[in-house]
């Protein structure tokens, strides 16, 4: 599934830990302009693209690419990262328009599992009730990373679990 330009800017901005205000300040535009870009209501001036790409730490090509970044891949043993250096990202986009992002270091997830915690204890979302964190951890230990869970509930909530 292709992602929109607005969603791409939104995700990259979040990865960089910037707010819309901070990004707009760096670009010399209004926060409303950034909000419009992220909601695909308008697009930035073409002359701003190199600066946006630079601030968000990508190339202009990557910025304009609409292919989804978070594929699921199985890494060979030689390319695997230490599990303690990976981050479990839980993304919930509710049908009401709420957006929730939780980034948990895998090491903390491991400790949580050892303490007997399950997914609802971490996220509080009912749609994640059936997600087995232990299975996710087992997959990651076998070198599987990327988007591991993608759920769209009947209510329209979208839930993704990505390990990066």
């Amino acid at each position: 599934m292709a992602i929109t330009f607005g969603k791409k800017i939104y995700e990259l901005r979040k990865e960089k830990g910037l707010t819309q205000e901070e990004l707009s300040e760096k670009l010399g535009v209004s926060p409303q302009a950034v909000s419009k870009w992220e909601n695909d209501l308008s697009y930035p001036d073409v002359m701003l693209l190199p600066k946006i790409a630079q601030i968000l730490g990508v190339t202009v090509d990557e910025l304009l690419s609409t292919s989804p970044k978070k594929e699921t891949v199985i890494l060979p043993e030689s390319q695997r990262k230490n599990i303690d250096d990976l981050i479990l990202k839980i993304v919930v986009n509710s049908s009401d328009g709420d957006k929730i992002r939780v980034n948990l270091p895998m090491s903390l997830v491991k400790i949580g599992l050892e303490m007997g915690m399950k997914m609802p204890n971490i996220s509080g979302n009912n749609a994640l009730k059936e997600v087995d964190l232990e299975q996710i951890l087992a997959l990651v230990e076998k070198g599987v990373i990327g988007k591991l869970v993608d759920v769209e509930s009947a209510r329209g909530d979208i839930i993704e679990i990505v390990v990066e």
Binding site: G17, S94, D96, D98, N103
Partner: peptide, 11 residues
């Protein structure tokens, strides 16, 4: 450093 642990944007 600066890892965003929780980010909630309500409607």
């Amino acid at each position: 450093p600066d890892l965003v642990l929780v980010d909630i944007e309500s409607s």
